[in-house]
């Protein structure tokens, strides 16, 4: 049986491809910096020997050849297990495969909460753990965060913030282990951003930060939680926090700076 790739090579008149192929890409000629890629004579395809990629240049394929190549691509997709993916999607999927294989600690966190939190929260947490993994590597997480928010709303956004700040491991797991009843009582309040932490962001004005601090202090006292944490990333957010929380003694709390590094600040208000 002739494979789809043999049909493709025959159609493009490629006699032999001298490399171990990793990936076949459909792309266009303006996507390439030619200096490091071997070009064919007719330039309807490019072979990247370094990456093991075969790149089909859709814009360079003559119109009369396109119908046959479309059929070949459709024949490829019709085979079980084959996918045709956009470049960024393929890259993210590869990252996820590797992450799922290698990140045992995150898997353990997820397994812990498997039967203890709502299914949607678990899915949000799973994505949040991956986002944290990327964040800690210094990678851009804007789209990942937007995806979580888009799918799970404010609740997903809160889970993301709490996860990145380590609250699932450092507060919620110990809480569950110490008292299932307390966990059940407090979980919903924490996830809906009613308790525990304030994540100051660009969209928050000074007054809003102050209001949030007062609100969280009140709620924490009501539920017996002895602290409120305030998180800020970036100079503007850090300044907002510092202006709201002074080092002077407050009748309600003591201020402790528990983390300050690389433009990230975490303040603890230890409630009196």
């Amino acid at each position: 049986m002739v494979t789809w790739f043999e049909r493709l090579k025959a159609h493009l008149r490629i006699d032999k491809v001298e490399l171990n192929l990793v990936k076949i890409n459909i792309t266009s000629s303006n996507c390439y910096n030619r200096t490091n890629i071997a070009a064919s004579n007719k330039e309807s395809y490019l072979i990247d020997k370094g990456e093991g990629d075969f790149n089909l240049l859709w814009d360079k394929i003559p119109p009369d050849k396109k119908p046959e190549i479309k059929q070949i691509v459709q024949s490829y997709i019709s085979e079980e297990g084959n996918k045709l993916l956009m470049g960024e999607t393929s890259e993210l999927l590869d990252n996820l495969y590797q992450y799922n294989q290698n990140n045992i600690n995150d898997k353990q966190v997820l397994n812990f909460f498997k039967n203890n939190i709502p299914f949607n929260d678990l899915e949000a947490l799973e994505s949040a753990l991956f986002l944290r993994f990327k964040f800690r590597k210094g990678e851009d997480i804007k789209k990942l965060k937007a995806d979580i928010r888009s799918r799970f709303g404010d609740r997903g956004n809160n889970i993301c913030n709490l996860c990145t700040a380590g609250y699932f491991e450092e507060f919620l797991i110990p809480l569950y282990n110490s008292s299932r009843e307390s966990f059940d009582q407090l979980y919903e309040l924490i996830i809906t951003n009613f308790l525990l932490a304030i994540f100051v962001h660009q969209g928050m004005e000074q007054d809003e930060v102050k209001t949030e601090i007062d609100r969280k202090i009140k709620a924490s006292k009501k539920y017996g939680i002895k602290f409120v944490h305030i998180h800020g990333i970036g100079e503007r957010n850090i300044n907002k926090i510092r202006e709201c929380v002074t080092d002077n003694e407050s009748p309600e709390y003591l201020v402790k700076e528990i983390f300050k590094k690389d433009n990230i600040l975490i303040i603890e208000l230890l409630l009196k």
Partner: peptide, 25 residues
Amino acid sequence: EFGGIQKGSEVFIKNDLISLMRLSK
């Protein structure tokens, strides 16, 4: 939102994190 396509009566793949996380498993 288009991320790709997979066999299975041509199931289209959304390019958001949650869809790809499900696909990766």
